[in-house]
């Protein structure tokens, strides 16, 4: 096959000879042999690249043992079952929402929003409740105790006011003593003050009259407390709605 310009048929004697032979073999020669070898090398390069890329493509699973593969498969099956269940639930929800009762969801959401607005104090409130008029010395600690008692007794909305100011009591309201007056969330109130509470009056009144409670504390310090039950207590003060 072809006429090869072969070097002498003996091993290279020196490094220089060896380098010369390598150089010589790399010299461009146009012959049939060269083209055949070129073709072989072309296929070799192509194949090496293909094999390497193929190996890199699926190293993750092809190097995994059979038991691990079974585990992977198991996990996938479980995940699929979970997702299917979720799909069924979501489709059921969708059916309910699309079905005849289409305003039910909206209505329940609005009810919930209204209830939350009362608790957060962002809406005015009216309803059955009590009004407490306090005259005498009142400390922030005993007032806070009274508020806690009222909340425990099921008070929905609470407002504290004096002659000029009204303060809605919400979760973030704070109380502080200030020489002769009370500071409630930054507003300075002077006795006599009035506390309006919306809730079940028959539960709220006893909560204040327990021994050591608000009434007990005020009267023992020489003050007066007057509790009035009413079916129409109106709380108008609100706290600004903060978002975020």
């Amino acid at each position: 096959m072809g006429q090869h310009t072969s070097p002498k048929h003996r091993p290279a004697r020196t490094s220089a000879d060896a380098v010369y032979r390598i150089r010589n073999s790399l010299r461009p020669q146009i012959s049939r042999t060269q083209s055949v070898i070129t073709g072989i090398f072309l296929i070799l390069g192509f194949t090496i690249t293909a094999a390497i890329q193929d190996n890199q493509a699926d190293t993750l699973l092809s190097n995994t043992r059979q038991s691990d593969l079974v585990n992977v498969l198991d996990n996938l099956a479980q995940r699929e079952a979970r997702l299917r269940q979720e799909l069924i639930n979501l489709e059921a929800d969708r059916e309910t929402l699309l079905g005849g009762d289409e305003y039910a969801a909206l209505k329940s959401a609005k009810d919930r929003a209204a209830a939350l607005a009362l608790i957060a104090g962002t809406e005015a409130a009216t309803g059955e409740g009590i009004s407490i008029a306090i005259n005498g010395t009142l400390s922030a600690v005993s007032l806070l105790d009274a508020i806690q008692e009222l909340r425990d007794a099921g008070a929905q909305s609470i407002e504290i006011s004096d002659q000029s100011l009204e303060v809605r009591v919400v979760a973030s309201t704070w109380f502080a003593d200030d020489s002769g007056s009370l500071t409630i969330s930054g507003a300075v109130l002077r006795v006599p003050i009035q506390i309006k509470v919306i809730g079940d009056a028959t539960v709220l009144t006893p909560a204040l009259e327990i021994p050591g409670g608000l009434v007990d504390t005020i009267t023992s310090a020489g003050g007066t407390v007057k509790i009035t039950e009413s079916t129409n207590i109106s709380i108008k003060s609100v706290v600004p709605l903060t978002t975020g």
């Binding site: 790399l26 461009p28 060269q34 070129t38 090398f41 296929i43 192509f46 690249t49 293909a50």
Partner: peptide, 29 residues
């Protein structure tokens, strides 16, 4: 020299064409 060029071209072709090795050939390649 020409065979070396052939090797280089083969590598480039493999990188560009991104061939998928047939399944039956995978253990032998």
């Amino acid at each position: 020299m020409i065979p070396a060029l052939g090797l280089l071209i083969g590598v480039v072709l493999g990188l560009v064409l991104h061939p998928t090795v047939p399944l039956w050939m995978q253990p032998y390649l």
